[in-house]
């Protein structure tokens, strides 16, 4: 499954990083604690969070995550958007809660 597939199926807004819409999604990780994601996420995972500052992109790049999904209508900061475009890691958004988006994402990508 590619990032563009979950964008369409979950009707997510694309904020940035459109060049990475064909990134392959291998799983998901849900956390707002950055060290938790740094320590425990795996490359290719889609990361669901409410954090919007630039450091989420540093983590997504270093961990080679497939995309970031920002919940509850929050919007990424401009510096976050710029880094996402630069690195080709899409930032997507939804008005839904972490619980709802994670549930829908799980249904889509579970094996």
């Amino acid at each position: 499954m590619k990032v563009r597939d979950i964008q369409e199926k979950l009707q997510l807004q694309l904020f940035s990083g459109g060049s990475g819409l064909d990134n392959e999604i291998t799983g998901g990780y849900v956390s707002d604690l950055l060290s938790d994601v740094m320590g425990n996420s795996d490359s290719g995972e889609a990361w669901v969070t409410l954090q919007t500052h630039k450091n989420i992109m540093a983590i997504a790049s270093l961990k080679e995550l497939s995309c970031i999904i920002i919940v509850k209508g929050f919007k990424p900061e401009q510096e976050t958007i710029d880094k996402s475009d630069e690195d080709g890691i899409p930032i997507l958004g939804s008005d839904k809660s972490t619980f709802e988006i994670s549930g829908e994402l799980y249904q889509l990508i579970k094996k």
């Binding site: 950055l34 060290s35 938790d36 954090q51």
Partner: peptide, 15 residues
């Protein structure tokens, strides 16, 4: 508030 400071940094390093 930024999601840092959860007390996981140094343990992450050590691991």
């Amino acid at each position: 508030e930024m999601g840092f400071g959860a007390g996981m940094g140094l343990p992450n390093i050590k691991r």
